[in-house]
Amino acid sequence: MNLLEIRELSVEFPAGEGSVKAVSGVSFDIREGETFGIIGESGSGKSVVGLALLRLLPANARISGNVCFVGKDIFSLEPSELRKIRGKRISLMPQNPAGALNPALKNGLQIGEVFER
């Protein structure tokens, strides 16, 4: 069974009068236990695909297509359901990992936080 199914995923950002296509018609499946990599030039939309999977794109992004995670449609999930998937089932490691730590809190606290949930 496929863990993650992505069908015809397209992302557009409105820019000026027209819009910028960041991702157009991406489809792929990831099976359980599989390691899957996406390689491409900078600006080719790798990160946008990753952000779209967790619905982390800014509100002005126009997204079309389907993303199914273990049979659930990610784009139609309730926010509370989505929060159960974020971090637990699908994690995202952003670029610039140094910025991922809050400068006002102690590091140990923030690393421990991940395991509490």
């Binding site: 967790l54 982390l56 929060r83 159960k84 998937i85 974020r86 971090g87 637990k88 994690s91 995202l92 952003p94 610039n96 910025g99 991922a100 730590l101 809050n102 400068p103 006002a104 809190l105 936080e113 991940v114 949930r117």
Partner: peptide
């Protein structure tokens, strides 16, 4: 900031992010 994004990615709720981060 990145740490707010990473808190969202790890499944933190709005109130938690506001209070903690």
């Amino acid at each position: 900031q990145e740490f707010v994004l990473s808190a969202v990615t790890s499944g933190a709720g709005d109130f938690h992010i506001i209070r903690r981060h």
